[in-house]
């Protein structure tokens, strides 16, 4: 039981720290990383809650969270690399860069 308490406290403190970085983070990448690591802490806390209540079946959902977290982070980073969503954006963005104009 003490172990559960210690683990829960540690994870919650880590969540608070990640949240603080998301709030004050000066650059964009701080925020992206804070969101990603907050998702990871969510997965950990979800697994811990499963073991506390004696039903670790929720680990499936933790897996889904992990996938979601990954996909969202990849999407955000791709978005800031290519500045668009959707298909065929790379060619168009490169073309816009070549012509030197803004692509808005």
């Amino acid at each position: 039981m003490m172990m559960f308490v210690a683990a829960a406290t540690a994870i919650l403190v880590a969540m608070g720290l990640a949240l603080g970085r998301a709030l004050i983070g000066p650059t964009l990448y701080d925020r992206v990383l804070a969101g990603n690591s907050f998702g990871t802490k969510t997965i950990l806390l979800l697994g811990l809650m499963g073991f506390i209540t004696g039903r670790p079946d929720f680990l499936d959902i933790a897996l889904l969270y992990a996938l979601m977290n990954f996909i969202a982070t990849i999407a955000i980073l791709k978005f800031f690399r290519y500045r668009t969503m959707g298909r065929g954006m790379r060619a168009r963005t490169l073309e816009a860069r070549k012509t030197g104009g803004s692509d808005g």
Binding site: L28, F80, A96, G100, S102, G104
Partner: peptide
Amino acid sequence: PAPTANSPIG
């Protein structure tokens, strides 16, 4: 791209 006010996100 040129850093105008119109330049997009990021």
